[in-house]
Every structure is written in structure tokens, then in C-alpha cells.
Amino acid sequence: MNIQFSPEKLKEVNELISHYPEGKQKSALIPILHIAQGEFGGWLDAPVMDYIADMLKLLPIEVYEVATFYSMLNTKPVGTYVFEVCRTGPCMLNGSDDIIDYIKNKLGINEGETTPDGLFTLKPAECLGACGYAPMMQLGKHYKEHLTRDKVDAIIDECRKNAASKN
């Protein structure tokens, strides 16, 4: 893969860097890693991190140590659709265990695994700030709330449809 931001993305990145004082460009690191993850396959491979380090004039280790600290930054490959289902107290009180079991059975994967077709990853999540709308999961940029088994079915169908239309 050619590791290089497109001109539009580069504009976005430079805009982010401009939010911080001269010489403090390191502050833009995490927001830029979000963009990089979106652009380069959903996770941060070492060459991607090196590219960012170079861009921000950082040592590669400064990027690695950040990428491994934050739960939203993936340092291993993930499926096209990552189901991040919250399982903390308030969601548990409203049946998140059942939703997680249902997804596991339906997709035939365990927590942290990806389906063989590379479409779905199940990633257990801790409280995502949607406790009043439980059970819930994060899917890409948005939250899916008030989950039921039927809703999970519909979400999976829609993902499959979207994936098929892209191929």
C-alpha cells in the first residue's frame, strides 16, 4: 500500500496541526492517528505510524507508545465492521450480556475475533456514555442504541448489503 495522505486529507491534517502553537505539533498526533486509521485500512501498521512520526517530526517510538495506549487505536487488523458492544454495569443491567452472546453465536466468533470473511470484528467495550440507551454498541462513527436481537439482525444484514455493493 502506498502510504500517503490524499491532498484533501493532507489539508485536514495541516488544519489540525494549525490548532496548536508553533513547535507543539505533537498535540495533533491523536487526531491525526484517527484520520490515518480511517484512511489506511482501519488499523495502524508500523509503516503508517512511521509516516506520521516523520510528518510530525517525532521519533517513531513516540507514536507507537501512544497508539498502544488508546483503545480506539488498533495496532492489529480488524474487520470492515467493528461491533464494539458495551458491557459495563449500566448496560449489563439492561441485558448487554444477552446481546453479546447473541452476536457471538450468530457470527460464530468470540470477543476480540474477526469472522473468516474479514467482515465483522466483535470488540468488547467499556462504558461509551450511552448508559440510558442501553444495550448499545458503537459501529464506526455512530452509536446503535436500545439493541434487541432483531435490531442486531438488521444491523448485520445491512453491513452485509453494504459490503456486497462495494465489491
Binding site: 490548532h19 507543539k24 505533537k26 498535540s27 495533533a28 498526533l29 491523536i30 487526531p31 492517528l33 484517527h34 510530525l56 513516540e62 507508545e65 501512544v66 495506549f69 488508546y70 483503545s71 480506539m72 487505536l73 467499556e126 462504558c127
Partner: peptide, 28 residues
Amino acid sequence: EIYVHRGAGAYICGEETALIESLEGKRG
């Protein structure tokens, strides 16, 4: 000027000094 800075998933970054570290582009 007001800028929105996006974190990346770490409860500890709500603690104010961890938040500051994170805003500086480091681990929280």
C-alpha cells in the same frame, strides 16, 4: 479561538492532568 480535540478511548484522560498529557500528544 475554540478548538475541538478528539481523544481516542481512555477513561483516565478525564483526570485533568492525564487529559493535559493526552492533549500534548502523549499517553494519558
